[in-house]
């Protein structure tokens, strides 16, 4: 009987690896889910109002999208964000992460601006408080400012329809 133990261990390992092959080892779940959005106080791009804080995100569900004009994933998701801003009721707030304003403005002019409000996080401090480890990352907040969901990497129709919309429906 004990001669079969190695075989049992092997079967367990293979089961583990089959799981491993189907999951992305790089995705790190955020500890912020279910918690209030972290505090911040950032200047806005258009200066109206001058600055915004986490309190300004409350009142209605909102998507907080960390992005930058230098990031390839952001280009990838940009058309879909444009589409969302046209077709969806949800508010879109962009936080421009470690990006020069001189780079950002022409980028927005060229590609269009899907955001209701853009905040600039030049030094990436807000990024750290939100646990951002790469752009784009998108947080879904409910009306009370609680974080419901975090999408790492480009936003896609699949994620929007299968993950985010049901969450928003459940809270409203």
């Amino acid at each position: 009987m004990r001669y079969a133990i190695p075989l049992v261990v092997l079967v367990a390992l293979i089961g583990l690896f089959i799981f491993g092959l189907q999951s992305d080892p790089r995705l790190v779940p955020s500890p912020l889910i279910g918690k209030a959005a972290p505090a911040f106080d950032l200047p806005t791009l258009d200066g109206q109002p001058q600055r915004m804080s986490q309190a300004d995100l409350q009142g209605a569900p909102v998507l907080v999208n960390f992005f930058a004009s230098w990031c390839a994933g952001c280009q990838e998701e940009h058309p879909y964000l444009m589409q969302l801003s046209r077709n969806s009721q949800v508010k879109l707030v962009g936080i421009d992460y470690k990006d020069a304003e001189a780079d950002l403005r022409p980028w927005l002019t060229r590609k269009g601006n899907p955001y209701g409000q853009i905040l600039t996080d030049l030094e990436g401090r807000a990024g750290i408080d939100w646990g951002v480890y790469g752009v784009p990352e998108t947080f879904v907040l409910d009306a009370k400012g609680t974080i419901l969901y975090k999408q790492v990497g480009p936003m896609t129709p699949e994620v929007w329809e299968h993950e985010i919309q049901p969450l928003l429906k459940a809270t409203s």
């Binding site: 001669y3 079969a4 190695p6 075989l7 092997l10 079967v11 293979i14 690896f17 089959i18 092959l21 189907q22």
Partner: peptide
């Protein structure tokens, strides 16, 4: 590349699994 991963995993299952089955059978 997951398809490669799947192949090596299957290969490992056959080679090591075969060897350990033989072991469980013959080693006693």
């Amino acid at each position: 590349d997951p398809s490669r991963g799947m192949f090596i995993l299957a290969f490992m299952a056959v080679v090591v699994g075969g060897a350990l089955t033989l072991y469980a059978w013959r080693a006693p």
